[in-house]
């Protein structure tokens, strides 16, 4: 690793983010980020589902309970859903999720929704970078069980 090319070393804590991506758009967006070499912090772990409509509140809350510092719900832009309107339903579910997250006392930044197309690699990378910065300020999730970082 050449010192000048490397970003500044951060000694501090790094968040761990669980990102749910739909097969057709946002997973492709993450692939495009790779193809475009859009560098981003190594904080996100992507879980692929076929449609954002499959992202279950069960999955989101389990991710928090396991120790996720943030959970990202991503899918196709509205109108572009591969399955007609799965993302419209995601949007409705997301409202519910937002409310529960607030009730749980989690900061709103810890749950985020974004529509990212398969070509929007840079947008994907920026999203991960932005969320990472926000969560770094907040620190670890209060729901994080002991023993996981």
């Amino acid at each position: 690793m050449s010192a000048e090319a490397a970003p500044a070393k951060t000694d501090g804590w790094e968040p761990k983010i669980v990102a749910f991506c739909c097969n057709w758009c946002s997973y492709g967006g993450a692939d495009s980020a790779g193809m475009g070499r859009f560098q981003q912090p190594p904080t996100a772990r992507i879980i692929r589902v076929m449609c954002s409509g499959r992202i279950d509140p069960l999955h989101v809350f389990n991710a928090f309970l396991e120790g996720a510092d943030a959970v990202l719900v991503t899918g196709c832009h509205i109108g572009d859903c591969h399955y007609v309107n799965g993302n419209d339903k995601t949007k409705i579910k997301y409202k519910f999720l937002e409310n529960v997250v607030r009730e749980l006392g989690l900061e709103k930044e810890r749950l985020q929704l974004n529509w990212i197309s398969a070509s929007e690699g840079e947008k994907f990378a920026n999203f991960i970078r932005d969320v990472t910065a926000q969560i770094k300020k907040l620190g670890p999730s209060p729901l994080k069980p002991g023993g996981v970082s």
Binding site: D31, G34, P41
Partner: peptide
């Protein structure tokens, strides 16, 4: 498991962290 587009290509200068991420994935 995607450890290229979602890992090595986007963490080119963070080899150790990329390795840890690949283990997780």
């Amino acid at each position: 498991v995607n450890i290229r587009d979602h890992c090595s290509w986007i963490h080119m200068w963070e080899k150790e962290k990329a390795t840890e991420k690949a283990k997780d994935l």
